[in-house]
């Protein structure tokens, strides 16, 4: 059962082509806002794609994924504040620290199941939030302004909004391709198998804990990259970027788009953020609409957008 990358599907092609052509539109219309919004969408889609690996394919409901966004972001922010502006240093550090944190959290939380796992990942993420809020040297609650984006001398200029957008888009597509390769490998089979029946996987001889931990660390590390991008995008990091509602948003994106589907998190990120943007123009109190909407989607629209497209195509 090989999960198809399925880029031939018309819907996927339209969305990806639309994203690729977006800077052309902004250059023609001078509408910088759309580019900023979509850079954000693409970055959060990377984070959601990384979450999808463990949530959608591995069945691990991590409610603390925003912590890696925060750790990746703070790695860039703190290094920048200490005078290390080179992205060649900042980004590897962001990845390494996120991965390390994922290793510790995963080693503790993967020993448990179900609701314990949800609560523990949430609690550890909240711990990082409080630690960041306690870092008085780096702005504490108020956050930390980053005065210059990561420098990749001679390679790419992140201060150029179009170049930065294309970098994010390329990394998003890379992360989707990476997920595709991963879940079709032996490793991915074990992860998916352990979601369906962990005990059986163990019985046929797979040390599933190690496989799941590895997937958890990969997802955390990759989300740290999204955090580094997000910090560069907003040129600001604060504890708010890893508040637990952000973890909730990421789960919503994955479920919105369709769990365990390759392009699902991208669809989810686009629809959630565009919906937020739209609703917030209608009313200041837009969350009063979004909240019940989430509940209704959970109750009546399982499978998310990807499932919906599938149903359309197959009648």
């Amino acid at each position: 059962m090989r999960a198809a990358l399925d880029v031939r599907a018309p819907f996927v092609v339209i969305v990806v082509a639309g994203l690729a052509l977006l800077p052309v539109y902004t250059a023609a219309s001078g509408d910088q806002f759309v580019l900023t919004l979509f850079t954000r969408i693409v970055i959060l889609a990377i984070a959601a794609t990384s979450l999808n690996l463990i949530l959608g394919y591995g069945g691990m409901v991590s409610f603390g994924h925003a912590a890696y966004l925060g750790i990746g972001g703070y790695a860039v922010g703190i290094l920048a504040a200490e005078g290390v502006g080179s992205g060649f240093v900042q980004w590897p550090v962001a990845l390494a620290v996120s991965g390390l944190f994922a290793l510790v959290v995963g080693a503790l939380s993967l020993r448990t199941r179900g609701v314990y796992f949800i609560m523990i990942t949430l609690a550890f993420a909240q711990m990082v939030y409080y630690v960041a809020a306690g870092l008085d040297r780096y702005g504490g609650d108020d956050g930390l302004t980053i005065y210059s984006r990561s420098r990749f001398a001679g390679l790419i200029n992140l201060s150029d909004h179009t170049q930065f957008y294309y970098l994010c888009l390329a990394l998003l597509l890379a992360s989707i391709a990476f997920t595709w390769r991963l879940i079709n490998s032996r490793f991915g089979m074990v992860i998916c198998g352990s979601r369906s029946n962990d005990r059986r996987m163990q019985a046929i001889g797979f040390p599933t804990f190690r496989y799941r931990l590895a997937a958890f660390v990969i997802a955390g590390t990759w989300c740290g990259l999204a955090g580094a991008l997000l910090a560069n995008h907003t040129e600001f990091v604060s504890p708010a970027m890893m508040y637990w509602t952000r973890s909730g948003d990421l789960i919503v994106m994955v479920v919105f788009g369709g769990m365990g589907s390759l392009f699902g998190p991208l669809f989810g990120a686009i629809s959630l953020l565009v919906l937020e943007e739209g609703l917030s123009r209608v009313t200041e109190y837009w969350q009063i609409i979004l909240g019940p909407m989430l509940l209704l989607i959970v109750l009546f629209a399982r499978g998310g957008i990807d499932g919906l497209i599938g149903r359309l195509r197959h009648g």
Binding site: L55, V61, F63, G114, V115, I118, T245, G248, I251, V252, V255, Y285, W286, Q287, I288, L290, G291, P292, M293, L294, L295, I297, V298, L299
Partner: peptide, 19 residues
């Protein structure tokens, strides 16, 4: 339903109540 649905549904309720 599974726990993920609970998490999402009640997460929606939190947004609702806060607002």
């Amino acid at each position: 339903r599974d726990h993920l649905d609970h998490v999402l549904g009640t997460f929606g309720l939190i947004l609702f109540f806060n607002e």
